[in-house]
Each structure stands twice: as C-alpha cells, then as structure tokens.
C-alpha cells in the first residue's frame, strides 16, 4: 500500500513537473530562402539560435489572482501586473513582448562566423516561442547550408 502511495506521489509530481519544465513550443513563422542545387552534394549544414527571455505579465496577473482571495496580497500583485500589461504590453505582437529587441541583430554575424568565406544557402528562418508558466523564451532560429 505504502509502495503504491509512494509511486502515485512520484507520478503526481513528475508528470506535472515534466510539463512545466519542458515548456511548450509555439511556432509563429517559418520562412524559406532560395534553395541551391549544389547544397545537398557539397554543403555543410549550419544552425544558429538567438533568444531573449521575457515575462508575460498578463499570465502572471491571472495566476496571482487565482491564487489568493479578493483582498489578498496575491490579488493586489495580480492587479499591478495587469495594469503594467495594459500600459506596456499592448498592441499587435508576435509572442510575448521582450525588454530588448537587439537579441536578433547578431543573426547575420553569427551566420557569417559559421561559414567564413562561404556562401550560405537553403536558409529557413523560424520565429518561435518556448513557453513556460509566466516566463517565455522568444527565439529566432536559422538553419542553412554553407557552401565553400
């Protein structure tokens, strides 16, 4: 009996934890570049990924409100997060707003570093989000082939 309870507890913890820690992957956009006929024969696959971690204040507000009663500290915190979101995280967007959009600027340089002196072709650019509770990772990933 004790063994069953132990196993149930472990499963009860492990399954939700694996969901929370793994995070969901949300695809926003995929874009292909031209494909070179020579790439499959004499190209080297390269891949780069840049990302920025951010906080979803809307989600934080909803969680905080559900945690406490109407006059609890969690509720006050939820309202504050909601107010912040309504002023700073509104408008059209892809994924969750980040605090610094410069993270994606290094993409051309990183690609060039991976293929010095070569031609980069067969590019696929993927814009995606790795979504954990409240915390989000906004990602730009580029897969390509380097031909020298």
């Amino acid at each position: 009996m004790l063994q069953i309870i132990k196993q149930a507890t472990i499963l009860g913890l492990v399954i939700p934890l694996s969901f929370v820690l793994h995070g969901c992957a949300v695809l926003h956009k995929a874009q292909l570049g031209d494909i070179d006929g020579r790439s499959s024969k004499n190209g080297t696959p390269i891949s780069i990924k840049v990302s920025e971690t951010t906080v979803d204040f809307g989600e934080a507000a909803r969680i905080a409100r559900n945690l406490g009663g109407s006059k609890s500290g969690a509720n006050v915190l939820g309202n504050a997060a909601s107010t912040y979101e309504s002023y700073f995280q509104y408008g059209p967007r892809t994924g969750t707003p980040v605090f610094n959009e410069l993270y994606a600027r290094s993409v051309p340089n990183e690609l060039a570093e991976k293929c010095p002196g070569g031609r980069i072709t067969d590019m696929i650019s993927i814009r995606e989000t790795r979504a954990y509770p409240v915390v989000k990772g906004e990602i730009v990933r580029v897969d390509a082939v380097c031909i020298k």
Partner: peptide, 27 residues
C-alpha cells in the same frame, strides 16, 4: 500543445528532394 517545432526545418529537405538536379527559386 507542441513541445518542439523540429519538423519545420525538414521542409527544406522535402522541397530539395522534389528538385534533385536543380535549384529552387521564387519560394
């Protein structure tokens, strides 16, 4: 719910297979 988007990069390979001896433009 999805845990990864690893199927998407395979699109390049699939498209390349459709045109084995040439290049693909105007995608």
């Amino acid at each position: 719910i999805a845990f990864d988007n690893d199927d998407v990069p395979k699109l390049v390979e699939k498209l390349r297979d459709k045109c084995p001896n040439g290049a693909i433009r105007g995608i």
